[in-house]
């Protein structure tokens, strides 16, 4: 029993190995943070643009947006990453691991965000549109100043959950050798012959995402919508 505990500590919490490999993990952490921020920025911007565009109800555009959203909700993100990374070079469009991961996850987040926000737009009562239009605001101004702010607020909880789920997917970048936390940690673990770098990697994820999850819980209560 005592021996077992010693072995566990030696394997997973080896101070020497941790010190040796910490810089690599930090490097990976930096990459993870960078991709995550890029994904959140691009994904949410694209999702908002698509949701707003859909409000104009232009037939063919609607069909295209719905198809885009459906496909990216149905495909596993790892499949999207692998298609972009391995299949696009056949079109002479080589992609860096960073681009493939960032672009894939941005598209996935955009699809989910569009769907969530569009549902929010639909949930804003008709009277809000009418009141705004009756004061002379145009369609775009009504959408931008009156409807979207309400739609965005009432959809904060599902959106926060989705943002967390998609950005956690940056770990999938390791499959195409993006040098983020998982890549760094598992190559370090095999080089060191010890899983302590994996522990470090796990800790790095917790350091990044636990604050995000806590922030998410706070946002959920902060924006709980009472009508």
């Amino acid at each position: 029993m005592d021996n077992g505990l010693e072995r566990l500590v030696f394997a997973f919490f080896n101070a020497e190995i941790a010190a040796a490999w910490a810089p690599k993990i930090l490097e990976g952490m930096w990459v993870t943070i960078l991709v995550s921020l890029a994904v959140v920025a691009t994904g949410l911007a694209l999702g908002l643009a698509l949701a707003a565009l859909r409000a104009y109800r232009i037939g063919p555009v609607d069909v295209a947006i719905v198809a885009f959203v459906d496909i990216l909700r149905a495909l596993p993100p790892l499949v999207v990453i692998i298609i972009l990374f391995f299949a696009f070079p056949y079109l002479d469009l080589p992609m860096s691991a960073f681009t493939a991961t960032w672009l894939s996850l941005s598209l996935v987040l955009a699809a989910f965000a569009e769907e969530i926000w569009w549902a929010g737009i639909l949930a804003v009562p008709r009277g809000q549109w009418e009141a705004a239009r009756s004061t002379g605001l145009g369609f775009g101004a009504t959408l931008g100043y009156v409807v979207l702010p309400q739609a965005v607020r009432m959809t904060v909880p599902p959106l926060v959950n989705r943002v967390i789920a998609v950005t956690k997917g940056t770990a999938l970048g390791s499959v195409v050798a993006l040098s983020e936390i998982v890549s760094q940690a598992s190559s370090a673990a095999s080089l060191a012959g010890n899983p302590t770098p994996l522990t470090l990697g796990a800790a790095a994820y917790l350091a990044i995402f636990v604050p995000v999850v806590v922030l998410g819980r706070w946002l959920e209560t902060r924006f709980a919508w009472k009508r």
């Binding site: 072995r7 997973f12 956690k168 994996l198 994820y205 995402f209």
Partner: peptide, 24 residues
């Protein structure tokens, strides 16, 4: 619940699969 909301499932899987053999 928050722990696993913050923890990428891939990392969890790697931890379980590649890490546990080190402790037998």
């Amino acid at each position: 619940v928050d722990f696993f909301r913050a923890f990428p499932p891939l990392v969890l899987l790697i931890f379980v699969y590649f890490g546990l053999p080190f402790v037998g």
